[in-house]
Simulated assay, not measured.
Amino acid sequence: MAMYAAALPVLACALLALAGVELVWKRCTGHGLLPWLRRRSGTPISATGFDEFTAVFQGSKRAELQHRQVQLVLREDDGDGALPVTGDRVDLDQGIARITRPGETHDAR
């Protein structure tokens, strides 16, 4: 029974050691440990480990991780962040932005 009681603290210490090794490796080489995590902006291995470790004890963390995964898969349409249809128009090709004040009429260009 004592072996099982010591398993969680040993796992937590192993995760901390992995985080330290990964940090030193990244500072020395500028790359991650795994080939698919070689980008500088990639998620560290230890962060994934800590997230999963936390999800075991907190159900809300599991829901948060699943939500993040769904957000990565969903596409963003051009109209998702667009302004509401008023008289405002932005033409990036010509470098022109037309902004109308509230209550002002606009032409139908």
Rank of each mutant, 00 (worst) to 15 (best):
M1Y: 12
A2L: 12
A2F: 05
A2Y: 05
M3K: 10
M3F: 07
M3V: 12
Y4S: 15
A7D: 06
L8W: 14
L8S: 09
L8Q: 10
L8Y: 10
V10F: 13
V10G: 06
A14M: 11
A14Q: 07
L16D: 13
L18F: 06
A19G: 05
V21W: 12
E22Y: 02
L23I: 03
V24K: 08
V24H: 08
W25I: 03
R27N: 08
R27E: 05
T29R: 11
T29P: 04
G30Q: 06
H31A: 06
L33T: 04
L33W: 06
P35N: 01
P35V: 03
P35A: 04
L37T: 12
L37K: 15
R38D: 12
R39K: 14
R39G: 15
R39Y: 06
R40L: 11
S41Y: 02
S41K: 04
G42C: 14
G42P: 00
T43Y: 01
T43V: 14
I45C: 10
S46R: 01
S46C: 06
S46F: 08
S46E: 04
A47E: 09
A47L: 12
T48P: 00
T48L: 15
G49A: 15
F50I: 05
D51T: 06
E52R: 15
E52T: 11
E52Q: 13
F53Q: 00
F53R: 02
A55E: 01
A55V: 02
A55M: 01
V56G: 00
V56L: 13
F57R: 07
Q58P: 00
G59H: 00
S60C: 05
S60G: 01
S60W: 15
K61L: 02
K61V: 14
R62P: 00
A63N: 04
E64R: 07
E64K: 09
E64V: 04
L65N: 07
L65W: 04
Q66A: 10
Q66C: 07
H67I: 01
R68P: 00
Q69L: 09
V70T: 11
L72F: 01
V73C: 06
V73A: 15
R75G: 15
R75H: 10
D77I: 04
D78Y: 11
G81S: 10
A82R: 10
L83P: 03
L83C: 02
V85H: 05
T86S: 14
D88I: 12
D88G: 02
D88L: 15
D91G: 01
D91R: 06
L92R: 15
Q94G: 04
Q94D: 09
Q94I: 03
G95T: 05
G95Q: 05
I96E: 08
A97T: 09
A97D: 00
R98Y: 11
R98D: 06
T100G: 08
R101F: 10
R101I: 07
P102N: 04
P102Q: 06
H106F: 13
A108P: 05
A108E: 13
A108G: 05
A108C: 08
R109T: 11
